[in-house]
């Protein structure tokens, strides 16, 4: 295996995971299947969005990707390394870095630079290289100017970008983000998503974005929709969001453009395809309108 380049950076094979609760005597009082026969192949450089309602298994799945949880059945492979292999776990966590919802729970340093240095320090990286990595990581999320600030002087979006820099300083190949924008204002949300997309496009970092915001999933290469611990739907955003009824049945919605297009079609307007963004929808409506005008002539 040594030196072999895996095209698939993350793989799951029939993964099952149960949350088991026991009483004081060790008897099982509850056994909840959080993941059932989950399989996927994620290619290097892909941008994946994972959607699903609360309790659908999204976060449990994410925690499997950097070995915070290991499968009860089946296997998860990160660059070919099995997450159940104790000897590889630190390599896996270095390759697959995780960013959570609340930046305030993730930032520990008194100064932005110190916070970002924390990860590489823990990895035992030499001081000179730490300084380089910190500088580089902050530049990659556009936070160089704030490097000497106290984190509590930053906005939510800036804090979250510092959290991402902290992960980048470990030089990961996969960035897993668990609802990173849920607590942010509109500008903070935009800043974080732009930073993540730019890392994906320019550096081909594989991104796995867990979100409740359908609009955030529109720019992904592929979407996995989780329901009841299983992958219920998968495909490109256009393929997935074309299935509005199936999504509604599992408590999810579609982006605004898709919803409006669907309503217009119900009323007999010939809006073609599945427009995912405002721009696409405006174009589709203009075409449909031209057709009406053309028909009248």
């Amino acid at each position: 295996m040594e030196g072999k380049i895996h095209r698939m950076i993350a793989q799951a094979r029939d993964v099952a995971y149960h949350y088991i609760r026991r009483d004081e005597e060790g008897r099982v009082v509850r056994d909840t299947a959080a993941l059932s026969s989950v399989s996927f192949d994620i290619e290097r450089g892909e941008f994946i969005a994972i959607l699903g309602h609360n309790g659908s298994g999204k976060s449990t799945l994410a925690k499997h990707l950097n070995g915070l949880l290991t499968p009860g059945e089946g296997a998860v492979l990160i660059e070919g390394m099995d997450t159940r292999d104790g000897e590889q776990i630190w390599n896996i966590r270095r390759i697959a870095g995780m960013v959570f919802q609340n930046p305030d729970n993730q930032i520990i340093g008194q100064i932005v630079e110190e916070d970002v240095a924390f990860g590489p320090e823990n990895l035992g990286v030499p001081p000179q290289e730490i300084a380089e990595r910190v500088q580089e990581a902050l530049a990659r999320v556009g936070m160089t100017e704030k490097r000497r600030f106290s984190p509590n002087k930053l906005s939510g979006g800036q804090k979250q970008r510092v959290s991402i820099a902290g992960v980048l300083a470990m030089r990961p190949k996969i960035l897993i983000l668990d609802e990173p924008t849920a607590m942010l204002d509109p500008e903070g949300r935009r800043e974080v998503l732009e930073a993540v997309h730019s890392l994906n496009r320019r550096e081909r970092i594989t991104v796995i974005l867990i979100t409740h915001d359908m609009e955030e999933a529109v720019d992904a290469d592929r979407i996995y929709v989780m329901d009841g611990g299983r992958i219920a739907l998968t495909g490109t955003p256009r393929e997935v969001f074309a299935q509005a009824e199936q999504l509604a049945a599992i408590g999810l919605t579609v982006p605004m453009a898709v919803a409006v297009a669907g309503l217009l079609r119900q009323e007999g307007l010939a809006v073609e395809g599945t427009p995912l963004t405002q721009e696409e929808l405006v174009e589709a409506i203009c075409r449909a309108a031209d057709k009406i005008t053309g028909d009248i002539k």
């Binding site: 453009a257 409006v260 405002q278 409506i285």
Partner: peptide, 29 residues
């Protein structure tokens, strides 16, 4: 935002006071 974009793209008369997909669709129709 959608309705304002349409206003700039050949629908100068369209109303823009919509806050749901349903309201937007109604104004477009």
């Amino acid at each position: 935002r959608l309705l304002e974009a349409l206003k700039e793209h050949g629908f100068p008369e369209i109303g823009t006071g919509a806050y749901t997909a349903e309201e937007a669709a109604r104004l477009i129709l």
